[in-house]
Design a binder for these strands. Sequence first.
DNA 1: ATTTTATAGTTCGAAATCGAACAATACGTT
DNA 2: AACGTATTGTTCGATTTCGAACTATAAAAT
Lengths: 160, 160
Amino acid sequence: MAENDSGEVHVDLFAFFADIIPRFIHETLKNYIVPTAVENNLNKSQLRTLLGIYKRGKATMSCLGHWVNVEKGTMTAIADTLHERGLIQRQRDSDDRRKVVLTLTGAGEKIAGECREELSSAFLERFNSLSDADRRELWKAVDSMNSIISKFGEYNKGNE
Amino acid sequence: MAENDSGEVHVDLFAFFADIIPRFIHETLKNYIVPTAVENNLNKSQLRTLLGIYKRGKATMSCLGHWVNVEKGTMTAIADTLHERGLIQRQRDSDDRRKVVLTLTGAGEKIAGECREELSSAFLERFNSLSDADRRELWKAVDSMNSIISKFGEYNKGNE
DNA sequence: ATTTTATAGTTCGAAATCGAACAATACGTT
DNA sequence: AACGTATTGTTCGATTTCGAACTATAAAAT
């Protein structure tokens, strides 16, 4: 907890974002195994990479590296594997030939979409036990926090 | 985005927790290198383990494994290293002799406290640019979300 | 135009992590 | 008590990831 200028007591912002939220997310999904990911023998990084491209339509290696939270050397290895399995395509960006743009193949898109749906369903189940009042309050808080977070520049940089 | 029963449009809860929040946390701290962690040659898992014990006072291997998000075999290796360096103590739980309880040594506590403070300061700097109105709204949303999240059982199970 | 500096991606040896088999302890049932 | 089942932590070979050196392209400075 922490006090603000007017003496009110609030949750410690750092504890909230660094402890409480990550723990909540992890607790919610830690025991859930994504069926389609298992069927297709995808580990966490490979899945997260596919979902990152799925969400963006296309993305560069660096952008995905930030998103998946791995070094660029690792991203190369992940892209190698996904490409070998026919799930993604690589092509040089014609505007900036240093960049490599990744897109999903038909097979990759199908798998990514199914995984996303499975994860989303599993996650949302957690909220079934909430009362209507709590659900409304949560949604209000989420909308509010979302609008503030989106004001921070880096978050919206897109496919940088 | 998603619609609720009354037709209002809200942020998609799954996207918020699985995409937006993790990305915000990562973006906020990705370029920050914790000085005390570097000085003491601690990698991310070792640091997170120390901070996990610091926050809880003491914790079992399993509890920390969940917290750090690694398999138990990995947790054994991490604990080995931290113990060799004199930062933690291991002892069997006398109530349940299967369990191993980890606590910080004096040296470990000092390092963990410094790292926590450094991370917290770096994180909170991000919010300096917010207007007073936004800051109040954010804090309100955080308090609200925190109270709802804390109703979910598993989150509060403690040193399970 | 040339030189410097910065950025994107790859390679590859070192380090960290996974995950399945295992041993020890606890719990539930009969 | 004895048996089967579940949980906790360790071990160790296989896999993944890190991180520094490198190449190629772009942008900025002179």
